[in-house]
Amino acid sequence: MSDQEAKPSTEDLGDKKEGEYIKLKVIGQDSSEIHFKVKMTTHLKKLKESYCQRQGVPMNSLRFLFEGQRIADNHTPKELGMEEEDVIEVYQEQTGGHSTV
Rank of each mutant, 00 (worst) to 15 (best):
S2K: 11
S2W: 12
S2I: 12
S2A: 13
D3Y: 08
D3W: 06
D3H: 11
D3P: 07
Q4W: 07
Q4D: 04
Q4I: 12
Q4C: 08
Q4V: 06
Q4N: 14
E5G: 15
A6L: 14
A6M: 15
K7N: 09
K7G: 07
P8I: 06
P8T: 06
P8H: 07
S9N: 15
S9P: 15
S9A: 13
S9E: 12
T10N: 13
T10P: 11
E11S: 10
E11Y: 06
E11F: 06
E11I: 03
D12Q: 08
D12V: 12
D12W: 00
D12C: 11
D12M: 00
D12K: 10
D12E: 09
L13Y: 11
L13S: 13
L13H: 06
L13A: 14
G14I: 09
D15A: 12
D15P: 11
D15Q: 07
D15G: 12
D15R: 12
K16H: 13
K16P: 12
K16F: 11
K17Q: 12
K17L: 09
K17T: 15
K17M: 09
K17R: 13
E18M: 12
E18Q: 12
G19C: 10
G19I: 11
G19F: 15
E20C: 06
E20Q: 12
E20H: 08
E20K: 13
Y21G: 07
Y21R: 09
Y21D: 06
I22K: 03
I22S: 06
I22T: 14
I22D: 01
I22N: 02
I22C: 15
K23L: 13
K23E: 10
L24R: 02
L24F: 04
L24Q: 04
K25N: 11
K25S: 09
K25R: 13
V26F: 05
V26M: 02
V26P: 15
V26H: 00
V26C: 12
I27P: 02
I27M: 06
I27W: 14
G28L: 00
G28T: 00
G28P: 04
G28E: 05
Q29D: 00
Q29L: 11
Q29S: 05
D30K: 05
D30E: 08
D30Q: 07
D30A: 12
D30I: 02
S31R: 14
S31D: 00
S31N: 11
S32D: 04
S32W: 06
S32R: 12
S32L: 05
S32H: 05
E33C: 03
E33F: 01
E33S: 07
I34P: 04
I34E: 02
I34D: 01
H35I: 10
H35G: 06
F36E: 00
F36V: 04
F36A: 04
F36K: 00
K37F: 03
K37T: 04
K37E: 03
V38W: 01
K39E: 05
K39M: 00
M40L: 14
M40K: 13
M40N: 11
M40E: 12
T41A: 10
T42I: 05
T42V: 11
T42R: 05
L44D: 04
L44C: 05
L44A: 01
L44K: 04
L44W: 02
L44Q: 04
L44I: 04
K45L: 10
K45Y: 05
K45G: 15
K46F: 08
K46R: 13
K46D: 06
K46P: 02
K46A: 11
L47A: 01
L47V: 08
K48Q: 01
K48D: 01
K48W: 03
K48T: 00
K48E: 01
E49G: 06
E49Y: 06
E49Q: 07
E49H: 04
E49C: 00
S50Y: 04
S50W: 11
S50F: 15
Y51G: 01
C52H: 05
C52Q: 04
Q53M: 04
Q53C: 01
Q53P: 10
Q53E: 15
R54G: 06
R54Y: 02
R54L: 09
R54A: 02
Q55I: 15
Q55A: 10
G56T: 04
G56Q: 14
G56N: 09
G56P: 00
G56D: 08
V57P: 01
V57E: 03
V57T: 04
P58L: 09
P58N: 01
P58Y: 03
P58F: 01
P58A: 09
P58C: 01
P58D: 02
M59S: 07
M59D: 15
M59T: 14
M59Q: 02
N60L: 04
N60Y: 06
N60F: 07
N60D: 12
N60H: 10
N60A: 06
S61K: 02
S61G: 06
S61D: 06
S61F: 08
L62W: 01
L62C: 14
R63G: 04
R63E: 07
R63T: 06
R63I: 09
R63Q: 05
R63S: 07
R63H: 09
R63P: 00
F64W: 05
F64H: 08
F64I: 00
F64E: 00
F64V: 02
F64R: 03
F64G: 02
L65N: 06
L65K: 00
L65R: 02
L65H: 14
L65Y: 15
F66T: 03
F66Y: 13
F66A: 05
F66S: 02
E67M: 14
E67S: 05
E67H: 03
E67A: 08
E67T: 01
E67G: 10
E67F: 14
E67V: 06
G68Y: 01
G68A: 01
Q69D: 12
Q69F: 08
Q69M: 01
R70Y: 06
R70K: 08
R70F: 05
R70A: 09
R70E: 15
I71K: 07
I71P: 03
I71L: 02
I71Y: 01
A72M: 15
A72Q: 07
A72I: 15
A72W: 00
A72C: 10
D73T: 04
D73F: 05
D73K: 01
N74M: 08
N74G: 13
N74W: 07
H75G: 02
H75Q: 12
T76G: 05
T76Y: 01
T76A: 02
T76Q: 01
T76I: 01
T76E: 00
P77M: 01
P77F: 03
P77H: 03
P77I: 00
K78F: 15
K78R: 15
K78D: 14
K78V: 10
E79W: 07
E79H: 00
E79C: 04
E79N: 06
L80T: 00
L80P: 01
L80V: 02
L80H: 03
L80I: 01
L80S: 02
G81A: 13
G81T: 00
G81C: 13
M82V: 02
M82T: 01
E84C: 15
E84D: 11
E84A: 09
E84R: 13
E85A: 12
E85L: 14
D86Q: 02
D86T: 10
D86P: 04
D86K: 04
V87Y: 13
I88H: 04
I88R: 03
I88T: 03
I88C: 02
I88A: 03
E89A: 07
E89S: 11
E89Q: 06
E89C: 00
E89Y: 14
E89W: 15
V90Y: 03
V90G: 04
V90I: 07
V90K: 03
V90C: 12
Y91T: 05
Y91L: 08
Q92V: 14
Q92N: 06
Q92L: 07
Q92A: 10
Q92W: 10
Q92K: 12
E93M: 10
E93N: 10
E93I: 04
E93S: 10
Q94A: 13
Q94L: 13
Q94G: 01
Q94Y: 12
Q94V: 13
T95W: 14
T95V: 15
T95M: 13
G96R: 02
G96A: 02
G96N: 03
G96Y: 00
G96W: 01
G96I: 01
G97W: 00
G97M: 00
G97R: 04
G97H: 00
